[in-house]
Nucleic acid binder design. Sequence first.
DNA 1: TATAATTAAATTGTGCACAACTTAATTGTT
DNA 2: AACAATTAAGTTGTGCACAATTTAATTATA
Lengths: 148, 148
Amino acid sequence: MKSSLTLEHQICFQLYTASKELTRLYRPILEPLKLTYSQYLVMLVLWEEDHIDLKQLGERLTLDSGTLSPLIKRLTQLGYVEKIRATDDERRVLVSLTASGSALREQAEDVPVKVSGMLNIDEATYFAYMEMLIDIKSRLREFGERQG
Amino acid sequence: MKSSLTLEHQICFQLYTASKELTRLYRPILEPLKLTYSQYLVMLVLWEEDHIDLKQLGERLTLDSGTLSPLIKRLTQLGYVEKIRATDDERRVLVSLTASGSALREQAEDVPVKVSGMLNIDEATYFAYMEMLIDIKSRLREFGERQG
DNA sequence: TATAATTAAATTGTGCACAACTTAATTGTT
DNA sequence: AACAATTAAGTTGTGCACAATTTAATTATA
């Protein structure tokens, strides 16, 4: 497997910059919703599955409590979510949408539409790219499982 | 163009997590070199093109002075680089490798080898993935040029 | 040639991202 | 039942990433 130390030939660099530049595209789109990109991802999870605990949220997004705790605090201050301690297991904290947080979903509906338009990409290519990214992740996970 | 609000169907999410998980893979590899992932990218640029100014460095890595100034300061403290003010234009600051920084290149040579091994990917697939990422970025840039 | 506009770095402030640690609740084991 | 191990959140500290502002040097222009 060829591998030079040139920046542009590193897949890590291409992933890193592609991710950053795509995130940059989201900023002006998310600004009217008062959400950062990471906060938007959390809201996506909650619109799918409300009353989720921090642990599960972290697993979906690959984020730990060090990132999520303060992030959820900010979403709480924005009035989009609230934290409720679970009664069955008092270690768990359930994150739930407020009325305002649920209502925001409607405004968010056209975020993906706008982004697709900006990317100017056809459906087949879009799905091919999705699969490649998922494949990269599964290769990373396979390695993780092989080792520790 | 189909677009649902489901997390896993968002290309942004796949890019974001793939990038984070690949970066995580680098951490133990870079640890003996005493470099973070971002610092490693800066070193890659310097090994290619020494005595580069912060402006150009930022253009290569899509980073601004707010990120680079403190990062370069840390690389200076590590003894890998030094900053020298340009004589022709005293606004510019040239970043140059020290002997220690140049010597580090040898240790870094097998970083890409290790990563490829971990990804367990054949050359054809690797290049296909690289092209996909470059294509995503060029679509983003095209949009940027269409608008502002 | 003054001065206005532009440019390169640095600084300040906010928000991730993550390692390491703390605290409190639950589960396992003897 | 007592206590050790585990688990879920939260906290602390470091290092990006980036917007906005500041400072100093250079270039453009009236």
